[in-house]
Design a protein around this nucleic acid. Structure first.
Length: 112
DNA sequence: GCACTGACTCCCA
DNA sequence: ATGGGAGCCAGTG
């Protein structure tokens, strides 16, 4: 059974998101080299094998919110996991200004 | 193999 | 601020 190389790439990008940071579907797609393929990221995460331990919870939508029905269990779990990493939710929203992952470029610089 | 859906996003009225 | 439509492509029936 062959796994789409695109999905592999996406998993790799997501796995490189450091603990305590988050990224958006659109950004992950862009970092992976698939501009405008946000939906593919969701698809890739959905089919990601657990063995890889992909930190899917660090991926949220461009509005800084969780892309699951707020009443759902998934949303609750994701929020919990993020808060465990020190991410703060303000009225159900994450401040991307503070937590958005900046990509490969030296995160130590801007983090000063 | 076609048609529809979806863990999305951008753009414009 | 808000809603509709297009773009992307993999999974599912």
């Amino acid at each position: 059974m062959s796994v789409n190389p695109r999905h592999k790439k996406i998993w790799a990008v997501v796995m490189s998101i450091p603990r305590g940071s988050v990224s958006t579907y659109g950004d992950v797609a862009r970092f992976a080299g698939y501009l405008r393929c946000a939906r593919m990221v969701g698809s890739a995460l959905r089919t990601a094998p657990k063995e890889l331990k992909v930190p899917w919870h660090r991926v949220i939508n461009s509005q800084g919110k969780i892309s699951f029905p707020s009443a759902g269990e998934q949303a609750r779990i994701q929020k919990r996991l993020l808060e465990d990493e020190g991410i703060v939710f303000l009225s159900g929203t994450v401040n991307l200004k503070n937590y958005a992952w900046q990509g490969d470029l030296d995160s130590n610089l801007w983090r000063m």
